[in-house]
């Protein structure tokens, strides 16, 4: 019993330490509070979204609407990023600013671009190509050996079918370069030796004081009672490889452009 309690405390400690490490490295929320810390991937994505959705009224220079200059970084109806997102999503009643249906990645991109529009040198941007990105995903990147999209690919890594709905361009761009740094803690790999000696390695889905649920390396859902385990290990290093060296910056931008098209089916 003593051993087990000791062990659990260790696990808890590691989770807390991990949370601290993430906070120190700057989360998406922290970025929003400090202009200048928007990720280049979000800004680039926002720029392309702006071109598709905003430019016809607001103009390429952000000053197409009378009395509104988006490049100034000053917004009449919004001071925080949250308020900007609200206006982009809900529009402004009785004006030509209509509501827009944008997901998490799109909102983060638009806000990042609007904040940085005034100081941006557009020639810096590496804009990806989604079709090339899809080919890289399935080819050189070999992403489908761990990830799944629309029913195809492995389930050992997170299913990416609707990844753009809840991960920002900045976060996904970071994952391609440094997967461990960007990994969502619940997704950590666990190594387990059950009481009967059966070994499991898999991605954590859910955990509580007494049990843990994983998807194992054979893509099975497995639920285990901790008290019955001989070993239980949480790995903090991502099993995903970094693409910092194996893909060029342009290729990573292409893969990102593809991921940003993944919005699921319902």
């Amino acid at each position: 019993m003593e051993e087990r309690r000791f062990g659990r405390r260790l696990v808890l400690a590691s989770v807390l330490a991990a949370a601290g490490a993430l906070a120190a490295s700057g989360t998406a929320l922290a970025q929003q509070e400090h202009v200048g810390q928007y990720s280049q991937a979000d800004i680039n994505f926002g720029m392309s979204l702006y071109g598709d959705n905003c430019v016809s009224c607001h103009g390429p220079g952000g000053d197409g609407v009378d009395g509104v200059n988006l490049r100034s970084g000053q917004f009449r109806a919004a001071s925080s990023d949250y308020e900007l997102e609200q206006i982009i999503s809900n529009g402004i009643p009785d004006t030509a600013m209509l509501p827009g249906n944008y997901n998490e990645a799109e909102l983060a991109g638009l806000v990042a671009y609007l904040r940085m529009m005034g100081s941006l040198d557009a020639s810096d941007a590496t804009i990806g190509d989604a079709a090339r990105g899809e080919a890289l995903y399935n080819g050189k990147g070999d992403c489908a050996s761990c990830h799944r999209i629309g029913g195809a690919g492995s389930r050992t890594g997170p299913d990416l079918s609707d990844i753009a709905n809840y991960r920002t361009a900045g976060a996904m761009s970071g994952t391609l370069v440094d997967p461990t740094e960007a990994m969502v803690p619940i997704n950590r790999t666990v190594r387990i030796v059950a009481g009967d000696g059966t070994r499991y390695e898999g991605r954590r889905l859910n955990e509580d004081t007494y049990t843990v649920q994983i998807v194992d390396e054979n893509e099975r859902l497995v639920s285990l009672v901790k008290a019955d385990l001989r070993e239980y290990e949480i790995l903090t290093e991502s099993s995903m490889p970094s693409y910092a060296d194996t893909l060029t910056e342009q290729e990573r931008a292409d893969v990102l452009a593809y991921l940003l098209t993944l919005k699921g089916v319902g």
């Binding site: 120190a24 497995v222 385990l229």
Partner: peptide, 19 residues
């Protein structure tokens, strides 16, 4: 910063595995 892997060894089995 990298976190060390952490491990714990559980004691003898007392209950049947709910697998």
């Amino acid at each position: 910063k990298r976190l060390a892997q952490c491990t714990f060894l559980a004691g003898l089995l007392l209950a049947s595995a709910a697998l």
